[in-house]
Simulated scan of single mutants.
Amino acid sequence: MVLKSLSDEDRANARAKALRSRGRRAEIKEAFRQGTMDIGEILELGATDEAVGRLRVADLLEAVPGIGEVRATALMEKLGISPNRRVRGLGRKQQAALIEHFSQ
């Protein structure tokens, strides 16, 4: 597949958009870590916010204190979530399982 060449302006716009998206995802992970946002709010936001929707579930789980890569992987396996799944790609049952897990 041949990619179209971008002008310098288009490239700068894409770079700025990527930077905003990374910043937004970092804000969401920090809010989840601090407890100012719960998993239900993040899942709702992921349906409308492109940056949040593209956040990997594993990265979100790893933002929680005490959950590292190994525990996040084990939790996702237990809940039936693929390791490379993103927030927007979660099904209803997977979302419900995450909400139930974090409500305990």
Rank of each mutant, 00 (worst) to 15 (best):
E50F: 01
L55A: 04
F32N: 09
R88D: 05
A12F: 11
K29P: 02
N84P: 00
R33P: 00
Q94W: 03
A51T: 02
A18L: 13
V64W: 08
E9L: 11
G35Y: 05
P83F: 01
H101P: 00
Q95N: 14
L60R: 07
V52K: 13
D59P: 01
L75H: 03
K4H: 14
E62N: 07
V64S: 09
N84Q: 09
R11P: 00
P65L: 02
F32P: 02
L79D: 04
G80C: 09
A72I: 10
K4G: 13
V57G: 03
L19N: 07
G91N: 10
I39V: 15
L61Q: 00
A63V: 03
R25W: 04
R25Q: 15
E44I: 03
E41R: 15
T48F: 14
V64K: 13
I28L: 09
A58W: 02
G53I: 04
D8F: 09
E62S: 14
Q104G: 14
A97N: 03
L19G: 01
E62W: 10
M76W: 05
A12Y: 06
A58N: 13
L3K: 11
A72D: 05
G53C: 05
A18V: 06
V64T: 09
R25P: 04
E50Y: 03
K17T: 02
G40C: 00
L61E: 00
K78A: 11
I81C: 06
E9I: 12
S5A: 13
A18H: 08
A97S: 12
R56E: 14
E62A: 15
A26Q: 10
L6E: 14
L75I: 12
N84S: 13
V87P: 00
R25V: 07
H101S: 03
R71E: 13
R86S: 06
R71L: 13
F32W: 12
R56S: 12
I99T: 07
D38W: 02
L19K: 12
K4N: 14
P83D: 02
Q94P: 02
T48K: 13
I81P: 01
A12M: 09
K78C: 04
K17M: 07
R92V: 11
S82V: 08
R22I: 01
E50G: 01
L55V: 02
V64R: 14
L79R: 03
R20E: 13
N13T: 06
R15Q: 14
G35W: 07
E50K: 09
E100K: 00
R22W: 03
K93I: 06
I42H: 08
M76Y: 05
H101T: 07
A16F: 07
G80L: 08
G66F: 06
Q104F: 05
